[in-house]
Write a protein that binds this DNA or RNA. Sequence first.
DNA 1: CTAATAGTGTCTTTCAGACATTATCCT
DNA 2: AGGATAATGTCTGAAAGACACTATTAG
Lengths: 231, 231
Amino acid sequence: MTSKARTDWRDADGKALTDYPRPSVAVDVAVLTVHTGRLHVLVVERPDGALALPGSFLRPGERLAEAAERALSTKARLVGAEFHQLSMFDAPDRDERGWVLSMAHGATLRRDALPPDAILVHVDGRTVTAPLAFDHAAMVSRAVDDVRARYARGVDPSGLLADTFTVLELRYLYETVFDRPLPKDSFRRLVIDAIEATGQMSRSGTGRPAELFRRKGDSELPAVAARILTD
Amino acid sequence: MTSKARTDWRDADGKALTDYPRPSVAVDVAVLTVHTGRLHVLVVERPDGALALPGSFLRPGERLAEAAERALSTKARLVGAEFHQLSMFDAPDRDERGWVLSMAHGATLRRDALPPDAILVHVDGRTVTAPLAFDHAAMVSRAVDDVRARYARGVDPSGLLADTFTVLELRYLYETVFDRPLPKDSFRRLVIDAIEATGQMSRSGTGRPAELFRRKGDSELPAVAARILTD
DNA sequence: CTAATAGTGTCTTTCAGACATTATCCT
DNA sequence: AGGATAATGTCTGAAAGACACTATTAG
C-alpha cells in the first residue's frame, strides 16, 4: 500500500509515477426505487441548493464500494444497499472545482428502506425529470439501463418487493422498471418457473385471493425474457 | 481544471479535498482479436518477463480513452482502436507498487491491424490461457462478456471482418466469439435483414460462390439474437 | 458427368400473445 | 347469488431448428 521507491515505479517513458499530478477520485450513487408505481431516484440537496446524487471522495486505501456505502450513510442515512459499478465519468471539466473522476454506481432499494424525508425525483423512461448537478443525469440513465439488464436476468434480484409477493405485484414492478405494459398471462408463464409458491394467500381486497410466492434459490429467468421485456 | 481555493472544495466532513492522498489511476486494455479461428488477446511482456495487458497511467487532464489509446500506441504500436469501459479494478493491494486503481478497457481489432510480431494469447471460452500479471485475467473475461453483448446486438460492430464478407465468414466469426456452433440456415435468417448484398461474388475455392455482403446502416440484430447466440 | 458449397423451401415443434373459461374469494 | 380477481386451458401466428432440395461454380 505505502509507496516505496522501486525501479519499476516508473512508466514506459521512464517517468516516475509520483511526477504526475493525480486526479481526485469520487463515487456517486444513483439509488433507484419504486414509489407510487413509478421509478424514482434518490437525490440530496447541495449547499448551493442544487440537486445531486449522493457522492463522496475516495479515501486512502478505500474501495469504491466502501466509499459509495459511506456516501449513502452520511448523506442519506442509508445502509445495506448493494452497489453496481456503472461507468467512470472522466471529462476533465466535469467538476469546476478541479480534476475529479467519478465512478457512477447504481443501487436499488425498497421505498420503505429509505428515510421518510428522502428527496425522490421521478425517472421518466430512463430520464430523470429534474436538473441534476454535474453529469449526474447521465448517471441516472446508466443506472436504469443497469437495473433493467439485471431484472431481465432474474426475478427481482435487488429485492424491490418483500420476501413474499403475488404475481400481480411482480408484474406491476416489472411494468414500472421496463416502462411498458406486460401481458398478464404471458408474464405469469415467464416467471412461474423462477418463483416458488408459499401456500399462503394474500388477503385480497376483493376477488379471489392471489397466492403468495417467494424467489427461488435459482431464480433465473429464461434468456427469452430479454426479448419479451425489452420489446 | 486548475484547482482554486473555494468554499465548496471540501467534503461533507469539512475536510479539504487536498488533504486526502489520491490514488494513481491507470488504464489497461484487453485487445481481442480472432486468429486462426480462435479468440486471442494481445499482451505485452513486462521488464520482469511477465505477461500483462498494455496499460498506462492517466496523465493530467487526460481522458481515460485517451490514456488507453496512448498505451496501445506506445506499448503495442497500435492506433485507431475503439475502446469500451469495462469496470474499475480497485483492490487496494492489486499493485504491489502502491495504490493504483485501473480502469479496464476492451477493444476489438482485426488480426491484420495488429503488428505482425504482436504477442497473442488464446482465450478459451472467457478465460485467458496464460498467467497474466495483476488482475488482468479477470479483465480479459470481462472483455469477452462485453464483446459478446455487443455482437449479440449488431452485426460485427467492431469490424472484425473486412468491409465485405460472406455469410459463412460471418457465421464462423460468431461461432468463435460465442464459442459454440451455430446452425447454418437459422443463422442466415437471423442476420440476413441486417446486412446488404453487394451483388459481387466471392471467388470461391470450390463449389458455388457465395455472395458478398456488407453491414447495413442500421445493422441491428433482432432482440431474439441474444437467446440464439447465448444458448 | 461428379464434387462441393451456397442458398432456399418446407415441416415440425415450441411458445408468446390473445382469448375464453374455470376457480375462489368477498359482500 | 352476484361481483371481482386469480389462475388455467385453448387457439393461432410466428419463428427456430432440422432436413431436404435446388442452384451454381470447378474440374
